[in-house]
């Protein structure tokens, strides 16, 4: 499975590398687009020194952590949400008769190596904010755990979005609310949002574990919403649970897919 995936993305990378100037430009363009969100945060902090109790560097830390996880996921499997397009074009049938898992094929489909530009941008912001904040190094072990958790949560979310498109063939944009919406939500401290929304993204759709709960631990801050200390460490468990759900949903989607051709 891993070998198939690696082979597929290597093939797409080679095809992109055939036009190096175009590749370099595309990398610059994706970085510039991603920098708009960063620009918004900087403009907000040109007007205030704290947002919902968090300083500029702390918000940049949360933004960097969430963005890095999101952009890595987007780079690796971001095209899984094109299921509805494949269904409408009839290409999903082709995918299903090939001797490789549909998820792997669709995740690697039209892999865009230029998205690495956004990953580097997010990594630079995270690195800069960590250097400025200088967190307690006994707590810094959480940073890689947080990134791995975030990548798994976003990957599960993309998979759920893909699975949902088996139902929403004509309205694929709905799933953007969860994927890109999740990215938008996690860019800011959750203390910004309403209490019910925060409860929802803690206990239902566990976006709070992408960067907020582990980030609070790294920053050594109590949760303004009052969750107990041990919830800082629940990220990996939440990520695992969501992945299982996503895998189930994906299976259901594939199993219940009926090609238009097969109905005669």
């Amino acid at each position: 499975m891993v070998r198939t995936y690696a082979l597929l993305i290597w093939t797409w990378t080679r095809s992109a590398a055939a036009y190096p100037a175009s590749f370099a430009l595309a990398a610059v363009f994706t970085t510039v687009t991603a920098a708009v969100d960063l620009g918004v945060i900087l403009v907000v902090f040109a007007n205030t020194t704290a947002l919902a109790g968090f300083s500029r560097d702390e918000v940049l830390f949360l933004y960097g952590a969430a963005s890095l996880a999101f952009c890595v996921t987007d780079l690796l499997i971001g095209n899984i949400d094109r299921v509805s397009g494949h269904i409408r074009a009839g290409t999903l049938d082709v995918v299903l008769i090939r001797p490789a898992a549909a998820w792997v094929q669709l995740a690697a489909d039209r892999f865009v190596p230029a998205r690495i530009g956004r990953v580097l941008q997010a990594a630079a912001v995270l690195g800069h904010s960590v250097a400025v904040i200088g967190p307690d190094w006994r707590r810094a072990w959480m940073i890689p755990v947080m990134l791995a958790t975030g990548i798994v949560i976003f990957a599960a979310l993309w998979t759920l979005a893909g699975a949902l498109q088996f139902l929403l063939t004509d309205a694929p944009e709905v799933v953007n609310s969860f994927t890109y919406g999740g990215q938008q939500l996690t860019q800011y401290p959750l203390s910004v949002y309403g209490r019910d929304l925060v409860r929802g993204v803690t206990y239902v759709l566990p976006l709070a574990f992408v960067n907020w709960q582990p980030g609070l631990y790294v920053l050594g801050r109590p949760d303004p919403c009052g969750t107990p200390e041990f919830t800082r460490f629940l990220g990996p468990a939440a990520a695992l649970l969501l992945s299982l759900l996503a895998a189930l949903a994906w299976r259901q989607g594939i199993r219940h897919y009926r090609s238009t051709g097969s109905q005669g």
Partner: peptide, 17 residues
């Protein structure tokens, strides 16, 4: 629907500001 969801998220940020 998507524009509304993003509207809600943006609104909270602006309220905090």
């Amino acid at each position: 629907f998507t524009n509304t969801v993003f509207g809600v998220l943006r609104a909270y940020t602006l309220i905090a500001l």
